[in-house]
Amino acid sequence: MTKFHLKYRRMPANSGNLQPYPIQPNSYITSNLADIQLANLKGVLYYNTVKQFANQYFYVIDVHSAFNFNLEGLGDVKTTVVFLNTMTNMIPNFSSKISNWQQDSNASVAIYNGIPQDGIKPKNTQIFSNPVHSDIFDWFYFKNVETFSLSSVAFYLDSFKGCTFKIEPGKAILGGTTTTALTTTGFYMKSLGEQQTVTRVNMMKDANSNGYTGANILGHVPNGATVTFYVEDNGKNYGTGTVPADFFAPWSTAVVGDDIVINSTNAQMGQYFVQYFVIQGVKLNVTTAAPGDTTTVPLETTTKLSGRVFTEFLCMVILILGSHRF
């Protein structure tokens, strides 16, 4: 089995759904390419555990072109989907754009950066979820999700009852846009090395309704760096400044402004994620839990990835510029 054949081992053939190929524990990879040629290859190797291979609801997807992704059609099941992106012909690299999100109110979805690991996930480590957790409510379902993108070689989605969306290589430009519903949630990511910019989003606003705006921020930034999120309303600012960590402490304010603004200082070599939301004209059962006194996304953990090389099954995507070298 060559790497070229593994790259196109898909079902259906024109999809991004990569099919696993079973290997023995002592298997290895050989190549007749010179060292310098090997060093110039760009791709991803993904190793499945036996448990993942046995799980019919565990998927690995190559984000190489636009396609509509549908988990709702699977029914009332728990799924884990790993997305891989090695596209380097865009700025920032490895960017995946997600749009046309649809989800039932009884479904749960959470997105995490990186790849699944064994064990139970710590609290509040998802970079995006629906329903959303906040300091003013335990979980709130959003019918509307704004188009967003994230720039990562690998990220994964845990779901119960699923969702549908369109995914494609590309960047969703958030700054200067206007939210598409009075009650909505969205997402922003600044990748490592990406230029810091002030990102301003205009709010679709009902002047006759009260509401809330909030954000969950996590990530890693250099010492001395901060990330700010604030709401501008009639010349006044309501916001938070934080040093992102591996988990988020929810923040919210009982204000719906004209704009929300995301910015950072000294975070050029940092990476952070912001899920924001706005709620208007909806009566909430507001909780009084202190920041950080939270529960995890209402999803049980599914099969996880062991990052060790000597696993028993291989699911692999090699996206190589100039793949004719094989």
Results as ranks from 00 to 15, higher is better:
Tyr28Cys: 04
Leu18Gln: 14
Ser27Leu: 03
Asn40Tyr: 13
Thr49Gly: 02
Asn48Gln: 10
Gly16Trp: 01
Ser15Pro: 02
Gln37Tyr: 00
Pro22Ser: 04
Ile36Thr: 13
Pro12Asp: 10
Asn14Asp: 15
Pro20Trp: 03
Leu33Asp: 10
Pro12Asn: 06
Leu41Ile: 13
Thr49Ile: 00
Asn14Lys: 13
Ser27Ile: 00
Ser27Pro: 03
Val44Glu: 14
Pro22Trp: 00
Asn17His: 15
Ser31Gly: 08
Ala39Ser: 14
Ser15Lys: 04
Ala13Trp: 11
Pro12Leu: 08
Asp35Phe: 06
Pro22Ala: 02
Leu18Ile: 14
Ile23Lys: 07
Ile29Asn: 14
Pro22His: 02
Ile29Ala: 11
Tyr21Ser: 08
Ser27Gly: 06
Leu45Trp: 08
Ile36Asp: 15
Leu18Ser: 14
Leu33Ile: 01
Val44Leu: 14
Pro12Val: 05
Leu41His: 03
Asn26Phe: 13
Pro12Trp: 07
Gln24Pro: 00
Tyr47Gly: 14
Thr49Trp: 01
Asn32Ile: 08
Ile36Arg: 14
Ala39Pro: 04
Ile23His: 02
Asn26Trp: 04
Asn17Pro: 01
Ser31Trp: 05
Pro12Gln: 05
Tyr28Thr: 02
Thr30Pro: 00
Gln19Pro: 06
Ser15Phe: 06
Asn40His: 09
Gly43Ile: 03
Gln24Val: 04
Leu18Thr: 10
Asn14Pro: 11
Asp35Pro: 12
